[in-house]
Design a protein around this nucleic acid. Structure first.
Lengths: 358, 358
DNA sequence: CTGAAAGCGCTTACAG
DNA sequence: CTGAAAGCGCTTACAG
């Protein structure tokens, strides 16, 4: 697709023939002395065009600043050049990072990003998605957690002929339809780090149980601890909901118990921030009295005091990979997108976790 | 526009004639025994249709679940049903709140939101915008600060026949092309509040000077103080850049000076959070030794310690008004959108500002 | 390797 | 108040 449309060359021999109109495929065909079907072949990178003809047409397109009309193309193709992002994650930082990654992945492709927040608990949830993708004849959608984990969604998309990629912490679908964020690998870093610092009494605050990531992060923590012969004790586990408020609440519960943990791994930064708050309310100092580790490495982790040690997840990179995979197989697209090293979580050490004081 | 497309009625006499295809305008015309032009008139809410005919057509549309194809309509109209959000504001919370407001404003309108972050300092900034709106034949765009303040942008949009609304803290354009957030009104609350608490030595940390809001917020502060016979002293003013880091830096500068202010109004929450940090670094307690007031009332204001007293700006509501105004005059749209009470800033009192200790 | 015809699902003149 | 024709800017069969 000719998405790198240049400025029309001023003083072009063709430009005045256009009289200020945007050039169409007909103009290109006329100037190149070919049929518009041949121009169409060049647009769609068909190999069945003589190299010489192709170059001539490309040169004219460039000279007059031609770019195919996505609406007309979409109408003929019965599919638009729009990609939807369907999400229900309430964290602004996640949403923005993801959007940024998706946009990075579709740069120079001629596709545009249409955002579609939704509410999984709404009675019209599925109908809304169907209407959205069918009405716009979306080329494809990217699903982020927790919509991505809803098994009712893929059949609806398939029925509408809409391609999709699911972003999730664990494999839920065919490899070509998944980008896996491998949260357990990140959480294992947290477990190892706390064990290495010398903690034995380690608490965990889970996220909303309807999010797979919550379970993956717990699993990762347990894996990390196991490497040091440690086990997660159920009495140090609290059920949160990924919100700041739930972090405060669970933090209060764990920290005001008779036998309290010397370190807490919260399943995200929001809840870890809540633990910081709970520590203040119970008169405990972080990290001196209790260490805290979060997950996400969103901006808040650097804004709070003490700054949070946390697990970085490359949200934008994962988004970029998702779009790349979605567009895979289309002309000009690289064909093998998967989470390489850049797509994996990593440990970010700041000030909220230190060895336990005696 | 029939955007409230219902489920097709199962068991409809027409549904099997469709054989699973999505219904088109031709199907509706055939079933209603009228020309497709008449159906088109109903879609476009033309008054020149006999009421009886109109009802019959509407009923059939509803029965078979017809919704006009925006791509086909767009091709014929030479304009899409897409609305762009063009922004360069790096704050995720602002971006997400704004998107949410825009989406709220376009619900049930059949329009979709296409997001387009950009970089004002890029050499291709204007060309990118032109390509974006022309290629997609956008119906219109909403510009947020600071893109909205760039006078080079509107001519480009006008030349492309793309409607626009500029969101800014002050009038920069015709009323029908502006939504004003009235930041100075909010900042005046901050000034009054600090004066009422008894502060005399009040500091101000400005935002990036290329943002009008920074000047408006200063102006508002000065207005508020003036009501109490107070003047902003230049030695208590620091030039920030709306970032956390600049807040730390300016906070350090103001707080470590010989004669330091007893209260600081930072032009946004990010910088106010930085001041909290600076206070810790200089061994001062907030609010006991220094009061801090922010601006925005983003989530961070409730996450930090002490929780920030700040100015709430109804970003989503402003976005909703912007879209409403953009769509104004189109069939079925309310015709008078402007910032009413709900669109104005307000003071949110939390824990970071108290009377000065002797 | 290239093209003429028909069609995607709508709307705009133009008639009546 | 209603309709037949042409067109929006592309692509899909089908030929050659």
């Amino acid at each position: 697709m000719a998405s790198d449309e240049a400025e029309p060359v001023s003083g072009s021999r063709y430009l005045d023939l256009l009289k200020g109109r945007r050039p169409t495929i007909n103009d290109v065909a006329r100037f190149a002395n070919v049929s518009k079907k041949t121009v169409s072949r060049v647009i769609n990178k068909s190999p069945a065009v003589k190299e010489e003809t192709r170059k001539e047409i490309l040169s004219i397109m460039n000279e007059i600043g031609y770019a195919p009309d996505p609406q007309a193309r979409g109408l003929a193709f019965r599919r638009s050049f729009l990609i939807g992002m369907i999400y229900d994650n309430p964290n602004p930082q996640y949403v923005v990072n993801m959007q940024q990654g998706l946009l990075a992945g579709m740069r120079e492709t001629g596709f545009e990003l249409v955002v579609h927040p939704c509410d999984r608990s709404s009675p019209t949830f599925l109908a809304d998605i169907r209407d959205f993708v069918e009405r716009q004849k979306l080329f494809g959608v990217v699903l982020t957690p927790s919509v991505s984990e809803d098994e009712r969604v893929p059949p609806v998309l398939d029925a509408s002929g809409c391609a999709y990629i699911r972003i999730a912490s664990v494999a839920l679908d065919l490899p070509e339809r998944m980008i896996i964020s491998h949260d357990h690998i990140g959480a294992a870093f947290a477990g190892r780090h706390l064990a290495e610092l010398g903690h034995h009494k380690i608490g965990f605050i889970a996220g909303r149980p309807t999010f797979r990531s919550s379970h993956e992060r717990r699993r990762g923590l347990e894996e990390g601890l196991a490497e040091f012969g440690l086990k997660l004790d159920e009495k140090y586990v609290a059920q949160g909901a990924y919100t700041f408020e739930s972090g405060v609440e669970c933090g209060m519960k764990l920290l005001s118990a008779e036998d309290r943990p010397t370190a807490i791994f919260a399943a995200n930064d929001e809840m870890a921030t809540g633990v910081l708050q709970a520590a203040r309310m119970t008169g405990l100092r972080v990290p001196d009295d209790v260490s805290v580790v979060g997950f996400d490495n969103f901006q808040i982790a650097e804004r709070v005091w003490p700054r949070l040690t946390t697990i970085h997840t490359p949200t934008a990179e994962i988004g970029r990979l998702a779009v790349t995979k979605l567009l895979q197989g289309r002309a000009g697209q690289v064909s093998d997108a998967d989470v390489g090293d850049k797509g994996l979580p990593s440990l970010v050490i700041r000030d909220s976790a230190t060895p336990p004081k005696a």
